[in-house]
């Protein structure tokens, strides 16, 4: 009986926390479907009286948003691919090789991850302008890589470390070069780690605001989070809130899809059956 009561309490807590977390999200969705005029109605309601696609129409007609969406996808995907590839090799080296300065490297990586980004914005702004990469994709990809790599390396080396040494050794005895062993055995086994890292990096690049707003000035490289703050309504007299919410809904969708698609792959456990266990 005691056990059942405990589990009920867990359910209650779960529902409470879920409601707490979901409320802003729901509000966002509901606002996105309200027409800009009724959103300031005298008798406000949580759900729109009349569901409308008008706001989505507005944001997709706006060059500011579509170019930002393009930039966001481009920058996030490039940064993610680069980060995953580099982190994969670095993490493998850290997990498998003993080399001088390994601990230093790891603690440096951690230190970089903890470094306050705000402190870097000013210097970067000046440097980037000097180098001519201010307001370019490259100008955003570089700092994103810097901050995404440490975490990626840590996550992936943890995954690599779980893979038994015998896997590579067996592959080598079977006739594989170290590179073949890595590509055909280790990478497939570390796939959950690679996906986890890729998704985390993508989220980071997708959501990042500080660099995006500071290191861009035009549509050339401005990403969605930054672009949203420049949003105006259809006219100066219209509140942009519903349009911003519609844009927010749009940019949330890729994230949700990513999580749903890769959810199963993220769950580790692919190595079960490799060795007796």
């Amino acid at each position: 009986m005691e056990g059942r009561r405990t589990s009920h309490w867990w359910t209650v807590w779960g529902v409470l926390i879920l409601a707490w977390a979901m409320f802003p999200l729901l509000w966002m969705v509901s606002l996105a479907f309200k027409s800009p005029e009724t959103f300031r109605a005298g008798t406000p309601s949580f759900f729109p009286d009349e569901w409308t696609w008008e706001n989505f129409q507005t944001v997709f007609d706006d060059e500011l948003f579509t170019s930002a969406l393009r930039n966001s996808f481009g920058i996030a995907i490039i940064a993610t691919v680069l980060a995953v590839v580099v982190a994969m090799f670095a993490a493998y080296a850290i997990a498998r090789l003993e080399f001088p300065g390994k601990r230093l490297l790891l603690s440096m990586a951690l230190a970089i991850a903890m470094f306050p980004q705000a402190a870097l914005v000013g210097p970067l702004f000046n440097m980037w302008r000097g180098l001519g990469i201010y307001d370019t994709w490259l100008g955003l990809i570089i700092p994103y890589l810097t901050f995404a790599l440490p975490l990626s390396i840590w996550t992936m080396s943890a995954f690599f470390r779980q893979i038994p040494w015998e896997m590579e050794q067996a592959a080598q005895v079977d006739g594989a070069t170290p590179w073949q062993a890595f590509r055909r055995v280790i990478v497939p086994l570390a796939a959950p780690g690679v996906f986890t890292t890729a998704i985390l990096t993508f989220f980071f690049c997708w959501n990042e605001f500080l660099f995006a707003i500071s290191l861009t000035s035009t549509d050339r490289a401005r990403t969605v989070p930054a672009a949203l703050s420049f949003f105006t309504g259809q006219s100066q007299f219209q509140s942009p809130v519903t349009a911003i919410m519609a844009a927010s809904v749009v940019v949330t969708i890729p994230i949700v899809i990513l999580v749903l698609v890769f959810q199963r792959r993220i769950v580790a456990g692919l190595t079960s059956g490799a060795v007796k266990g």
Partner: peptide
Amino acid sequence: QNYALYPH
């Protein structure tokens, strides 16, 4: 000893 089969 632990067979080292490729689980994937």
